[in-house]
């Protein structure tokens, strides 16, 4: 008896309610973080022998299409660390922070404190440079003998990474000749800074490394 009553009563659709669907929408947010992965770091004498060039690359293996859409994460500081006295503790930093399409540079300047936490050394403001758009000519800013660039570039790294992994995994015994450059044809997001040697110790050896740090 009851069943008949229900049949009459609930002949209305209840299926497609938007929010039943919406419940699934929140399921699979990608876990963030890949935008901060450093792919490479370079330090070498500049075209002007009185200068040192630092290169920090993030977001590797960008296809040309992905390069069009790739952006620096504006909550991330890319910090080049310089140790001038050989104790592997930074005495100077160069900080790069993207905001609204520009990369802002601070330093070389002594950090507020060494280690895992940084604050922006706004007193050491060096310059800012428009982040070069994919496919456009490199935009370069200069100030007080320093030069600055930020934007997509060809990945300068070259390595038969897959064969290396195959050797490690025991599925190959040696490299091929010629090898296959995994990074051929791919791009990275680069930050390039050139500074006079006099600003980072003048002579002798320095130690350097790069860090990415996220705003809290």
């Amino acid at each position: 008896m009851k069943k008949t009553k229900i049949l009459v009563g609930v002949a209305v659709i209840t299926v497609a309610g938007f929010f039943a669907i919406a419940a699934d929408h929140i399921d699979a947010p990608a876990v963030t973080g890949g935008t901060n992965d450093i792919t490479d770091f370079y330090a070498f004498q500049g075209q002007d022998n009185n200068n040192i060039v630092f290169v920090a690359n993030v977001q590797g293996l960008l296809s040309p299409t992905a390069t069009q859409n790739a952006k620096f994460d504006e909550n991330t500081m890319i910090e080049i660390n310089i140790d001038t006295d050989g104790d592997a503790v930074e005495d100077l930093v160069i900080q790069a922070i993207p905001k609204d399409g520009k990369m802002y540079f601070f330093g070389p300047v002594a950090p507020a404190q060494a280690g895992l936490m940084s604050t922006v050394r706004t007193s050491g403001m060096s310059s800012s440079v428009g982040i070069t758009a994919a496919g456009a000519n490199a935009v370069v800013a200069t100030n007080a003998g320093k030069s600055f660039f930020a934007g997509p570039r060809d990945d300068p790294f070259f390595f038969d990474f897959d064969q290396f992994n195959a050797i490690l995994a025991g599925t190959a015994t040696g490299f091929n000749d010629p090898g296959t450059d995994k990074f051929k044809g791919t791009n990275v997001l680069s930050v390039v800074v050139e500074v006079p040697k006099t600003m980072i110790g003048g002579s002798g050896n320095i130690n350097s490394w790069v860090e990415t740090k996220r705003k809290q």
Partner: peptide
């Protein structure tokens, strides 16, 4: 707010549509 301050499109868009849903609720 975090997504907008990072200015990464994917997470901005994700937070907009999901907030829109919650506002609807």
């Amino acid at each position: 707010t975090v997504a907008e301050s990072s200015n990464m499109k994917g997470i901005k868009q994700w937070s907009y549509t999901n907030l829109a849903d919650f506002y609807g609720h």
